[in-house]
Structures are given as structure tokens and as C-alpha cells.
Nucleic acid binder design. Structure first.
Lengths: 214, 214
DNA sequence: TAGATTGTTAATCGATTAACAATC
DNA sequence: TAGATTGTTAATCGATTAACAATC
């Protein structure tokens, strides 16, 4: 079993490798990765070792890691392999931004539906992605085999939205609202809530700033 | 020193207490908090005990915690006490949503500036919050004693934006872009990046779903 | 007082760091 | 070969859980 902190680091490492690859790099050492990411080289190596596999399969020459094969290994180990369908519920301003968001990397995720409770909104929005009224969520999630969802509805509608998604068999939710979503433990939820991030930052700088050491 | 996992849980607890208070509740036990938050009651008690203070100061009667005083204790311990100034850099669609966002609780955070590199955008937007061109970031952050910032600029402008903020003395950044921001270690950064959250969810359900136990 | 709940000390568990042998 | 880097085992550290005394 891979520990959660490791999963987080590996996800962030994947992102980093993506960037390095775009910059044209093909190789890098664990020490180089440390200097960019801040994660200690031995932690990176340890994390990678937890992926198991078959012995010292990662290295190529003594020059470090080959970025493309390292990405492949992560893809394999973390299950980024097959394309996952996703949807957005709540097409207010925030939802529209996400809908048009070009960052949905086609290799990994595909946005296959948008939902809103307001029929007017649905008619006004012209999108390449099919849009549906919110009461169809459960059925469409089933029909289109949607695994991931973004919730960007008003606070008061968040739980109802989640319930519909869950009923349809959704597996993961990114929650952009301030609501704390009640959910079964086999449904994973990530909350992206600015105020909470501000609070966390406040605590960090309050607790760590004055006491640089110890 | 309070461990980081504890800080996270306490932030989330604060949010939760806020909600309970709005529902009209005044008291709750650690067990009740467990059932809502999923955090074990003994962990909640342990976390609270780490706040130090003076002995068993939290409880009131045997009925559990008084929500308002518990909130006060958290406010005190985590440094939510005095109002912090914040700004938003990048007033595209995402930035505009955040600018209008009513969730900036006046007690804790005050949005005192918006920045954009496009002068047209600045003129078109009518906002109660003063708006400035991006090259003024460093000076305005100093002048207005801004401690926290949200970055919602295009990917390519993220690092420049961060550099300007940091030069002005910013203490915490919430980064809505896909960029990995380079920063000194006394500046705290939180990345809110949907794709990375999707990847994390993918890994979780890939690694934990099939193996319910062990 | 008896029952329930908290706050805290002790025990367990797991993640991080260190050390080093294996590999290029 | 010598130097550098990886992969892995062992040691340390810290967080979580358990147990229980103190408190209401």
C-alpha cells in the first residue's frame, strides 16, 4: 500500500516532469528534482521504490532518470493510464470558466458533460460539450460512465448535487463550494475553498514565522 | 510546535464550527464532531490539547464544548484574530469571479486591491475594490500592507506575478494557475489546480478501490 | 453518586531520514 | 577503475491510536 503523502508527492512530481519535458529536457537526477521541487532526493527515490515493479528498472545509464520512462512508470503505478470521463455541475461564472478551460489534458481526462439547474443558462451557453439540466445528473453519469465531477453550484445546492452524482456512481469530486459534502467513504472528495486556504496560510505564517527554528 | 496535519484539521474544524453555529447550535461533544467531520473524537481532543493554554479550559459543563468559545480558542491559537489584507492578481474571468465573491468574511480577510496587466480590463471593470495595473503590485502590496494574494493570471505570467508580490513582502499565496511557483521558504504557497486534484483522485480510487482492506 | 466526556500520558504505528550496498 | 547516482535496508522521528485519570 502506498502512503497518502507519497501519492501526493508523486502527483506533484508528475506535474513537474511534464513541465521539464515541455522545456525539452529528457533526463534528470533525483538531486535535480530536489532542487526544483523542494522534495529531498532520498524521499523521491524512496517514493519511487514504493511503486514496486521489478527491481532497478528505472535508471538508464548513470545519468539519472529518463523523464519519459519515469512518467510512464508513474502513469502505470498511479492509474493515469486510461482516459477518465468528467463533468461540471453548476455553470455560473466559475463553472463557465472551467468549462472553457483548455487544461483538460485529452490523454487523461475528458469533459463529457455540463449541468445546470437553470434551463435559460443551458440555452444561452454554446459549448462543444453537451449540456444537460441538473435533474438528469444521475442518469447521465451512469450513461456516460462519468467518474469525476466538479461542483461549482451555489452553496445551498452543493449537497443535493453531490447526492445526485453519488447516486449515479461518481467516484471522485472536486468541490469548489464552501459546503462540506457528506459522502460514502468510497467516494473521494477534494475541497478547493479559498477561505480555508487563506486560513491555513494564516496559521502557517502565524505559527512558523516568529519561530524560525525549533 | 503544532504539527501540520493538526493545523489542517483545526482549520477544517473551524469551518465546521462556523456552520454549526449558523445552524443555531451552541454546544457539541467531540463525538458529535467526529460523526460530522470524520475525524476521530480522540484526535480532535488531542489536537485541541496541543494548543496548550491553561489546563482544562475548554469545557463548560459536562455537555461538551461551547461552540463560540471553542471558535475563540482556535482564533487565538491559529492567529485568525486580526484582519488580514488580501489582493487578487489577474482579473480574467476567474479573477472576476473571485473579486465579486462574497465569501470574504470581513472579520478575517479584507480584499483591498485587484491587479491586471491590461489597462482596458481595469477601466471596464467597475468594482468597489480599487484596481491597479500589475506593474504597481510591489508598491501597493507594501503600501497597503497586503499579506495574502490570489494569483489567477495566465500560466506564463504566474512567476513574474509571484516575484512582484514577494518583492512587496507578501506572506502567503493561493495559486490558481498550473504554474509551480518558485518562492523563498518564508513565503507560503497553496496550489489549487484542478488537474492535479483530478490526478490525486484518480490515484486514490485506483489504489484504494480494488483493495478495500489491507 | 453514577455516567459521560474531557485532557493527557503511554503505546503503537507509520513515515521520514540516514546509511550503505548495488549499479551504471 | 573511480565517481556518481540509484534502490533498499535500518534507524529515527513524529503522528496517531489506545488507555485512563481527572472533571463535570
Amino acid at each position: 500500500m502506498i502512503p497518502e503523502p507519497t501519492i501526493k508527492r508523486l502527483c506533484s512530481l508528475f506535474h513537474l516532469l511534464d513541465d521539464l519535458e515541455k522545456e525539452g529536457l529528457t533526463c534528470c537526477t533525483s538531486r535535480e528534482l530536489e532542487s526544483i521541487s523542494g522534495i529531498p532526493a532520498y524521499t523521491i527515490r524512496k517514493d519511487l521504490s514504493l511503486l514496486g515493479g521489478s527491481g532497478p528498472r528505472i535508471k538508464s545509464r548513470s545519468a539519472g532518470y529518463e523523464i519519459s520512462s519515469l512518467k510512464e512508470i508513474l502513469t502505470e503505478a498511479l492509474g493515469f493510464g486510461e482516459l477518465k470521463n468528467a463533468c461540471i455541475v453548476g455553470l455560473g461564472k466559475m463553472g463557465q470558466v472551467l468549462l472553457q478551460y483548455s487544461g483538460f489534458i485529452p490523454d487523461e481526462f475528458r469533459l463529457v458533460a455540463g449541468f445546470d439547474s437553470d434551463v435559460n443558462t443551458l440555452e444561452l451557453l454554446r459549448s462543444e460539450i453537451p449540456l444537460y439540466p441538473s435533474y438528469e445528473i444521475t442518469d447521465r453519469v451512469k450513461e456516460k460512465k462519468i467518474e469525476l465531477a466538479i461542483i461549482s453550484v451555489p452553496l445551498s445546492a452543493a449537497q443535493l448535487t453531490a447526492d445526485r452524482l453519488i447516486k449515479g456512481g461518481i467516484k471522485g469530486i472536486v468541490n469548489f463550494t464552501a459546503a462540506r459534502i457528506q459522502h460514502p467513504e468510497d467516494v473521494f472528495v477534494r475541497n478547493l475553498y479559498v477561505i480555508e486556504e487563506f486560513r491555513f496560510l494564516s496559521s502557517q505564517l502565524y505559527l512558523k514565522e516568529d519561530t524560525p527554528k525549533e
